[in-house]
Amino acid sequence: MLFLAWALLPIPLKKAVRNGFHEFQVPSWEALSWGRDLQNFWAGRANRHSELISQGRDLARLNGAFRLQVMENESLRQELQRMEALLDLPPRPRYRYEVARVTHRQIGTWWHEMVVRKGRDDGITEGNGVVYAGGVVGKVQKVYEGTSIVRLVTSPGFRMPATLHGQTQPLFIQGLQHGSIGKPTGRVRNVPISSNVTPENPGYLVSTSLGQVFPNGLHIGKVEHLEQSSNGLFREGTVQFPSELYNLNEVAILVPLPSTTKTALKRN
């Protein structure tokens, strides 16, 4: 009876029920997440003053270095804009970085996802790219009012275009959880046949802006060995993703800026 009733239930109704139950749980998740933050705060408070002062000094140095880099980046950005205008290049996609705390992670053999504390209210939409300081995290899979589910790049069934660092030909990465526990891996496919990598000289996979989800050059993972694909046209191999992916507490969601979302494709 129950099976039949569930099967016959209209999909919009199922979705509504699901969303309702999800929203019902959000406050408790947030409470847990705040609790963890509070825990970290009190752990921080437990530090001695001298330690805090020395850490503050280190931080100030880093801030100084970063401030210089920001200035340099700004001048490079302007230079780039001038070049692009000269060459009449189509505008590149630009993004707003929406920083979000991770309420909890759900990573195991069955799924690779995390819930973050930003949602529809913050302008997040399904399919937005998610990154962290070390590179690509994944994509927004589902958006709720104040939370979103992020599907990790390691997730089975996740696919994204990428390039090998220094190359332009797009290949693609597919999540594939196997290998050692806690070591995220995936498959890289459609690698140009001329590409060669070795454990001593691994290939670094970076994002490409061609797919309009991520900007160019964000680190994804590395590949140390490539073998010929079954159709003989490409090479493929196992990607090793950074292990921090499974221990993230904060990510940034890439929200495309409206002016660039409708950029016409440049047809060859």
């Binding site: 992670r105 990573i107 195991g108 959880q177 806690g182 995220p184 221990n247």
Partner: peptide, 19 residues
């Protein structure tokens, strides 16, 4: 369920999930 969610959050470092 909440406790399990929290536990799984910490276990995710080793990509383990308890059900």
């Amino acid at each position: 369920w909440l406790i399990l969610t929290e536990l799984n959050h910490y276990l995710s470092v080793w990509s383990l999930y308890i059900l």
